[in-house]
Design a protein around this nucleic acid. Structure first.
Lengths: 161, 161, 161, 161
DNA sequence: TTTT
DNA sequence: TTTT
């Protein structure tokens, strides 16, 4: 059936990406991304609300995230919403929502250390669709022998990442 | 800070909208929306995965939803992601993600009863930005004396709906 | 430099797609797509304005367009804006804007003949990213010996279509 | 009829905005915005293509553009495509495409003079939906006695800007 | 030149 | 947990 599931975010990373290399060499990176909006409450006072998004990127984009994207930086994300369900220890069905990104573009922002020079610095490298999403150097294991995907991290070939 | 939080969905309603009228006459409608994607698994078999989105619409759009949108129909939704947090009965912090829609356009689809004639039938009424989002006829209470917003349903003037 | 160029349209085809097969078998389809908006003029009268978009689709999507998409139908298009420049016969620089689609999903609508049954009928076939955008059967020329791409229709491998 | 016409751009201003104040005090700003994409040509060489978009912003956003947005800066634009038609001096029908923005967010970038301090500096002021789009201080004419809207710049109340 |  |  005709279906669209599309998300566009511009926000700042709350932490450095956490990168894992699954069996077969496929990379996955995760990081929290903050978006905030300001509004006036009923007393006319300016308020701010921050939304936290769990971003997941796969393969080539994950390796870009690993190398170039840091806490504090601003990125553009294009992807889709995905809600995973699992059972908590009491056996209750729980849900966890994440954004699977298929495009990520760095916009600059305030990197921490200082190593990353400035806004848009790695724009070309990181940009968007041109970053290959095919398996990222399978075989060239980057020292991740024991990492296992968590329960809801199904085999990458099973799902349309 | 520069921030964008935008969602675009095309999907089908899993149920008729549930509409409530808060104090002051502000309407809120909620309904589940399904999007699905097909992909090949590692055996080359076609698989389908359905994503369920919790849609929330306010004020004028809620009244449009109440009158014209039914289970099975296809709608275009534009909005933003919002994650509410609450404590479950064990005191554990839980999260619930919804899509607050600020544009909703009917695309037709498969209404159930038959009362709704056809695709796009009410398109003009329902369409998008032209639907007023200012308080929907405050005072003209539609018989909802006891309904109280749930905990995370804060006062509408407190939040940028 | 960090750059995004993204268009999302839902509209109706003004004509059947015109399909051409370039040397090498790459297919290109073009069709006009109407979007319309209604608004109140200063006398409070409802007015309608229709926008016409020149849609271009390549390769696999062009073949989907050729087979399944007809005048009158409603489609979802995702793509990017592209403005071609050329000189008119007086040597004046002119511009022509088109939308290069990389995702096209049929939403139904009112096909003419009647052969196309109903809304979303070919949704699965046509849908989105899963439609291959790799060269569409090169070699299997579909009888297009003399068609040459127009001036601004550069070699497909030269441009990121 | 169900119709969507939506554009999302991130790019850099090619010039400072040109602002005009129509009768009634309504402001309009225009500026060219560049987006660029890189791709490999058939020789495997990296090529870049730049797209120029004619951005138009009205009312409150125009005044934000006038005050805070400068050549070289990076902005996020959300709007819709609009193609105006006119007759050239030979009486031939010509078309000119522009993007009417209804959301503009500054992302920083490379302002020229140096007066504008840094990335996202005026983000809060400029941001998005919160910028009023109602008539921008009618009466407080900013010294624009003779400027007349060009032919295709119809009365603002006639069109859904 | 579409659709409502 | 980010940013302004």
């Amino acid at each position: 059936m005709a279906s669209i599931n599309k998300v566009i975010l511009i926000g700042n990373l709350g932490k450095d990406p956490e990168v894992r290399h699954l069996e077969g060499g496929v990379a996955v990176a995760r990081f929290p991304l903050a978006t905030s909006e300001t509004f006036k409450d009923k007393n006319g006072e300016r308020q701010e609300r921050t939304e936290w998004h769990n971003i997941v990127v796969w393969r080539g984009l994950a390796e870009v995230a690993e190398k170039y994207v840091k806490k504090g930086q601003s990125v553009y994300i294009e992807g889709r919403i995905r809600t995973n369900s699992y059972q908590d220890k009491e056996g209750v069905q729980r849900y966890s929502t994440e954004i699977v990104a298929d495009n990520m573009t760095m916009l600059g922002g305030r990197p921490e250390g200082g190593a990353v020079a400035g806004a848009g610095n790695y724009g070309n490298e990181a940009s968007s669709a041109s970053v290959s999403n095919t398996s990222a150097g399978s075989g060239q294991s980057k020292g991740n022998p024991s990492n296992k995907p968590v329960a809801y991290e199904e085999e990458p070939d099973d799902l349309p990442f």
